[in-house]
Structure formats: structure tokens, C-alpha cells
Nucleic acid binder design. Structure first.
Lengths: 297, 297
DNA sequence: ATGGAACGATAGAATTCATCTATCAATATG
DNA sequence: CATATTGATAGATGAATTCTATCGTTCCAT
């Protein structure tokens, strides 16, 4: 009867019977029947439905909470038993904000040395999406901003402080400066992430605080796209220092510190706060604690 | 697949396939098949068996840990969903040490006023057994000594301090005293609990510390039996003050404080330390916290 | 209004899965 | 050495799950 809990988790994710069924690898009538069975067993309506999925009832919400925990524990159990047999193995699912993607390798590389049988899935997501995925057990860990959004029921391990650089060609206006102010940056046409990204919202906030306005010439949800534009020498962008370094600077491409204020954002690892942790996740937390001191130059 | 976890819990309790099967309400082959299925699924041997149950493998022990948690959470989930519908209901299973049995009513009575639909099962057990039952989810809460045994993964709520009285007829030797010493008590023939009870071991320890020896004339595992003997006026016993009061004193039956030292033992409620608690258990904890200040005169 | 698409519920058939009874082999016990 | 106990195995039965196919609503665009 406990495997039906997968159904209600999937339904919470998809908010759609058909898609939830597909996600569970069953047909839609099967999922419908499973939910109906849960409802019959508890004697309570779990889902408000009228020709389509509407919402969970309060009882459904509570069951959802428990289901997350129980399903998570069940997975953790199997994972741990497996580990006892042949060391840490399985697939570690991570989601990171785009600006942090470049540094994920600094965690995964030493991780892989220690635990060669673990496979990785790494997704690029917004900070909000990351928290949702964590909540729904669709990922094991996230890398995101720790300061702004309320994080929910997760453990956070700070990794480094994001510092901002104006990324621009040496020939462009401001291109020869040792540092620039946010007020000056506000005057430059920029390539920035789309507004659903927290990085963009942070930069917008800093620009506004400096009396400027954010009117980016170009928006994208891909850092690679932004960077490739800047690299032509005809565009400019604001990027975290670490990312700019990773992507590579040239003589003509400069990353100029932005001051007044010298803003920083804490970026860190977030994992579900469950006791005990899945070993595969615990090992990542270990790696993060090991790496953190060396990251923050 | 998750309902098979019941099997391994039962097997841990009974250490016997047949009895475990009976406890689960299935036949022995069913339980055997269920375990074999778990082993096939995880690919690990869980139980060492050679013509009979021997032990769990390390992997089995780990799965046992998880199974306790998962099964407990599953129960808690159903219980909570039920509560949302028609208030707190279900059966609250408590085990208490014999000397604390009399005061259980001080918790259950106000509990019942607040939650009339909850039924009770109350068992008399030794302190050791109580911890085992808690561990195996066979009871929801225990009432036992908090000071001595290591408690394990439980939350403890102190209720009161047990103080000791010599229970004896007024005509007997020492019967006219306002207080007696442990050394004096050691000289009297006593009715005491059997040595598997912690209360007995505590008293033995106190008697020995006073230079005496414990040679009780009569042993029993039932407080009622002890008390009924004392009541005849021809026997004496050492009992917690609270218990003596509850059972009722008469002109000829006196409860004399024992000093040098004036020993006390903390008695309290213990519940599984799981987050969140089952509501039915949480309500008992509330009751305990409410009652505790008024209990310790 | 009306036709069509999307969504979830329902019915009935096929099949898988769990459980039972009966029995066996191995081991412990006297 | 005889017997009882314990857990594994085999085959039959029955229950439960899942599937395919279809239906009734609702929503939306024409």
C-alpha cells in the first residue's frame, strides 16, 4: 500500500493525472485507482478534482508531507544497503543556479576520486526551482543563493561569496578602468540573465540602488550565450568573478571589479534536512565542507 | 513492497520465523517469501539462518533501523490523517514500571477528557522491557526511571521523584517511628519486587550502601500482591511514597520515610524521538508536561 | 451555439502477485 | 537413534493490480 505514495508525490509535482501516471510508469487509470484507494483507506478526500486536477485537500497536503519523508527514507534505505555491499554507488542528482555551474566541477571532481561508482546528473535551474525540486525529492542537492529566499526545510553549507565584475572589452567605454561603480555600470548596455533568475534580480537591485535602471540590451537564460556575446568584444555583462575566471579572460576581455557597494552573495550547497542523510548526499556535504575554505579567495 | 518491512520488524522481535509470521497475521512460508524478496531486491543477505534463525547481517541491521522509522512514520501518517477527520482517536499503548502504575491515571484521566475517542492499552513491564517495546514500536510511550539505564533514542519528560517509605504495620518493630534509616530497614524482613525489576535493584543498592543485605522474605512481580501482604499487618515492604498513598493507608498501616540517605529516583515519560511525533503521543507529552509540576510535592 | 480537444472516471479482461496448504530437509534434543 | 522443531520449497488458489477501451465533463476556439 505504501508504493501508492509515489502516486501522490508525482501528482504534486505534475498537477496532472496523466503526466503523473507517466512519471510513475503506469497508466492514468492505474494512478486514479491508486489515489482512490488511498482515499478509501483513510476515509478522507485527498484531492479536490472537478473534471481536472484542482488542488490537494488539507488532509492531502498532510499526507504529502509524510509521503515525502517516507518515500525519501525508503530510497535512503535502499541506497545505504547498496553502499554497504559495493561502496558508495548510484546517481547523485544536483541542480545549480547558472552562475554557479562552473564551480560544480570543484565538488564533483574530488567526489568522483573518492567514490568512483557514483554517477552524476547536474541540472541548470533557477534558485526557486531548485528548492521545489529538493522538496519533491527530484534532486539530492542544490547549489544556490543562501541569503535571500527563505530556504525551507533544508541544510545549507556555505561555499563561497559571489563578487561581481563588469565583463567587457578593453576597448569599450570603462574598459580601461581598474574598478567601476554600479552607477557607472548602469549606463552601459548589458547582456543579463532573464528576470526569473535570482542573479538578475540581485543585479537589478544593485543597479537601482545606485540610481540606475536595468535595461539590458540582451537577455538569456544561458550563461554560455551571454559570455559568447561578450567575447565578441561588442557587448558587456555583469558576472560573478568566479564564473568569469572559469570561462577564461583574454587580453582584450577584462573583468573589472564593481564597487560602491562591493556587493557579495553567499552561494552554498543545500540538501534536504533529513536525519540521517542519504550517504550519497552526506558525501557531497563532506566534499563541500572540504572545498569551501579554498574557494573563497 | 514496503509492507514487507513489517516482517523484518516482527522477526527482530520474535527471532523466530514462525512466531514472527503469526505476529504479522500471515503463515510462515509467506513471511519467508517476503524476506527472500527483500533480499533479492537489495541483492544482500539480510538474515543469517542455518536451520533456524541466527542473526541479522550488518545489512539486515541497517534495514531494521530504517524499517522502524519508515513503519513508524507510516503509522503516524495514517493516525494524523484520521485525527484531522474526527479529532484524536485510535489506541494509545503505554507501558509502565509497576511502581508507577498507580500514577498513570493522573495522565490518562485528563487526557481522556480532552480526547474522548482515544482508547488505552496499559501494560506493566520492567524498565528494560519498556525500552525494548518502544524501540520495536510495540508501545507509543513508556513510564520508567530516567536516571539509570541508558535510554537510547527517546525523548524523556520528567514526571516526579520517587521517594521511599517503609510500609509496615504500626505494631511491628519500627512501626511507631517518624523516620527510619536504610540501615534499620535492612534488619526487617521485607516483601520486595523480583530482582528483574529496577525498583528492586535500586532498593538493594540502597540497602547494601547502608551496610545491610537484601534478603527479602517474599518476592513477587506484582505490587498488588506485595501490598496485600503488607496490609495483613504481618509483613513489611519498601515502596515509593506516591504508590503507598494511592493504595491507601490506614491507622494501623504506616508509610515511614526512610533517610540516610533520602534517596530519590526520577520517573518520567519516554516517547520515541521522532519528528514529528504521532499526535496521539504528542498529546500525552502535553499532558505529562501539564501534570509534572503538580506531581512533585 | 458548436465542434473538438483535454482530462479524469469507469468497466471489463488479462495477468501478475501474494498467500495458503502440504510437505521436505536439516538440525537440535532427549 | 527417535522425535520435535525450524525454515525452505512446490503447487494451487484467490485476490489485487494493471491494462485497454470508452465514456462523460469541461474548456476553448471557431
Amino acid at each position: 500500500m505504501n508504493d501508492k505514495l509515489d502516486f501522490i508525490l508525482a501528482l504534486a509535482r505534475e498537477r496532472h493525472f496523466g503526466r503523473a501516471a507517466e512519471a510513475c510508469g503506469v497508466t492514468q487509470p492505474t494512478l486514479s485507482a491508486g489515489l482512490k484507494q488511498l482515499e478509501k483507506q483513510t476515509g478522507v478526500l485527498l484531492v479536490n478534482r472537478g473534471s481536472r486536477f484542482q488542488s490537494f485537500t488539507p488532509e492531502g497536503e498532510r499526507m504529502l508531507e509524510w509521503a515525502r519523508r517516507i518515500v525519501g527514507d525508503t530510497r535512503a534505505m535502499h541506497e545505504e544497503i547498496n553502499s554497504l555491499r559495493r561502496g558508495l554507488s548510484g546517481r547523485l542528482r544536483i541542480a545549480a543556479i547558472p552562475t554557479a555551474l562552473a564551480m560544480v566541477a570543484l565538488l564533483t571532481t574530488p567526489y568522483r576520486v573518492r567514490h568512483p561508482n557514483v554517477q552524476f546528473t547536474i541540472l541548470s535551474r533557477t534558485s526557486i526551482e531548485i528548492l521545489g525540486l529538493l522538496e519533491n525529492l527530484e534532486i539530492d542537492a542544490g547549489i544556490t543563493y543562501l541569503d535571500n529566499e527563505p530556504l525551507g526545510r533544508v541544510n545549507a553549507i556555505p561555499l563561497y561569496h559571489e563578487r561581481y565584475r563588469l565583463l567587457t572589452s578593453a576597448e569599450a567605454p570603462l574598459g580601461n578602468r581598474e574598478q567601476v561603480t554600479w552607477a557607472e555600470v548602469a549606463q552601459v548596455p548589458l547582456c543579463l540573465l532573464t528576470p526569473d533568475m535570482q542573479n538578475r534580480r540581485i543585479i537589478d537591485r544593485l543597479l537601482r540602488a545606485a540610481g540606475g535602471e536595468s535595461r539590458p540590451t540582451l537577455e538569456s537564460d544561458s550563461m554560455i550565450l551571454l559570455f559568447s556575446h561578450v567575447r565578441t568584444g561588442r557587448w558587456a555583462s555583469v558576472m560573478p568573478a568566479k564564473l568569469a575566471e572559469t570561462l577564461g579572460l583574454t587580453d582584450t576581455l577584462r573583468a573589472i571589479p564593481i564597487v560602491e557597494p562591493e556587493a557579495t552573495q553567499t552561494v552554498g550547497l543545500v540538501v534536504p534536512s533529513r536525519e540521517p542523510m542519504m550517504q550519497i548526499t552526506a558525501a557531497l556535504v563532506e566534499e563541500a565542507k572540504r572545498a569551501a575554505p579554498t574557494l573563497d579567495n
